[in-house]
């Protein structure tokens, strides 16, 4: 079934049934994106009709986990947008280094490539010991991958190029061990990660942070949900804390925008004023 063949009404009905049955709320997600993801699931899992799909989602116990995993987009890479990481390394981490403790929240961290990127930078800046990285996602399966820190070896060429472009000076291959077609990152990098499920739609703030990183997550939300999540981040950031989003994400039309200043005209990092 092509995305354009999924009716708005049948989709809205199913998403409401999913909230009632499982508590997962996708009703404020981008309709066009959800339709594409469902269309993709149709092909992967060989559904013949929307009704068959709906029945499976609502009655087959284990299928909702797959639904959540496949509806959410889990495409990410290490040091994605190297200019962004360069700015973190040169302007944000030196400020955080002056604090006694550093708490960083990676919201919607997916399989964790960007969390490992942060761990590498914290180590290189010399503040790993006093830092904690909270890695959260709606999807428990991707968090298993964060815990493992194992990525396909074929991705490492890109990761390594990104690392160098972001200002990394070490030998990138010293951070992982390659075996067959996989690369496993050092356990030390994971030692300061706290991994947990968290649903940005329904869960509340759980700590105060100096830096919140949430990249290419808000693009899948409608405007009211974007505003709500930005309020959640604002409530979870210390005064003078930093908020970092994806390269095409904005806070300028959100209610919190007057309380933030952008560090750089290009990279999407803002600092809370007070």
């Amino acid at each position: 079934m092509a995305p354009e063949d999924i009716g708005d009404d049948e989709l809205a009905l199913l998403l409401n049934e999913i909230v009632e049955r499982y508590g997962y709320d996708f009703t404020s997600y981008s309709t066009a994106s959800v339709k594409r993801r469902i269309s993709r699931l149709f092909i992967l899992d060989h559904f013949k009709s929307f009704e068959e799909f709906r029945k499976t989602v609502l009655t087959e116990k284990n299928y909702i986990r797959r639904f959540v995993q496949e509806i959410t987009v889990n495409v990410t890479e290490m040091f994605r947008d190297p200019g962004f990481y360069k700015l973190l390394r040169t302007q944000v981490l030196p400020v955080l280094a002056t604090y006694p403790f550093v708490r960083i929240w990676h919201a919607g961290c997916s399989t964790g490539e960007e969390v490992y990127s942060m761990a590498i930078m914290l180590k290189e800046v010399g503040i790993m010991e006093k830092s904690l990285m909270y890695a959260t996602d709606i999807n428990p399966d991707v968090l298993d991958q964060v815990m493992k820190g194992i990525y396909p070896l074929r991705s490492l060429k890109l990761f390594s190029e990104n690392y160098i472009l972001s200002g990394g000076k070490e030998d990138f291959s010293s951070y992982y061990t390659a075996k067959y077609d996989l690369a496993k990152f050092d356990d030390e990098l994971r030692s300061k990660m706290i991994v947990s499920t968290h649903n940005l739609v329904s869960d509340r703030s759980f700590n105060e942070f100096q830096l919140i990183i949430c990249r290419n997550v808000l693009i899948y939300f409608n405007k009211p949900l974007q505003d709500k999540v930005l309020e959640l981040f604002d409530a979870s950031l210390e005064p003078r804390g930093y908020l970092a989003l994806g390269s095409k994400e904005q806070i300028k039309f959100a209610s919190i925008s007057s309380r933030y200043e952008q560090l750089d005209p290009k990279e999407k990092i803002w600092r809370k004023l007070q």
Binding site: S30, A32, S33, R36, R37, V73, V75, N216, I219, Y220, G246, K248
Partner: peptide, 8 residues
């Protein structure tokens, strides 16, 4: 309205 998507 437009939306952006970073999927596969």
């Amino acid at each position: 309205t437009f939306s952006l998507d970073y999927s596969e």
